[in-house]
């Protein structure tokens, strides 16, 4: 049973690696941010599966935390790029 969950976690990590291609190629900074947000959700799922596979319920706290934190990076990204563009538009 645990090997199945570990296999699923492995599959999700493969998903993240595949998503990395978009981060590398992504023409716009926004596309890269989209990929980063995708990895956040996939990371939460992978952590949950690992928590079940390794029978240590504490890892769920890490998953809970992760679900909240990906938003931080996106907020920072939006705040910074808009600040700079508004800045560029001024002069």
């Amino acid at each position: 049973m645990n090997t199945f969950f570990l296999g699923m976690a492995l599959f999700l990590v493969l998903n993240i690696l595949a998503g990395l291609w978009r981060v590398l190629k992504g023409p716009e900074p926004a596309d890269r941010m989209v990929a980063a947000q995708l990895f956040g959700t996939t990371g939460v799922a992978a952590l949950l599966l690992l928590a079940q596979a390794l029978e240590s319920p504490v890892i769920r706290n890490a998953a809970l935390l992760f679900a909240l934190l990906t938003v931080m990076a996106v907020l920072a990204f939006v705040r910074n790029t808009s600040y700079r563009d508004k800045h560029n538009n001024d002069h």
């Binding site: 976690a9 890269r32 990895f39 952590l47 890490a62 992760f66 990076a73």
Partner: peptide, 15 residues
């Protein structure tokens, strides 16, 4: 952005 992903995969390694 890659560094943020690096942190994510590292968390998986710690788990």
């Amino acid at each position: 952005v890659l560094f943020i992903t690096f942190g994510l995969i590292l968390s998986l390694a710690w788990t």
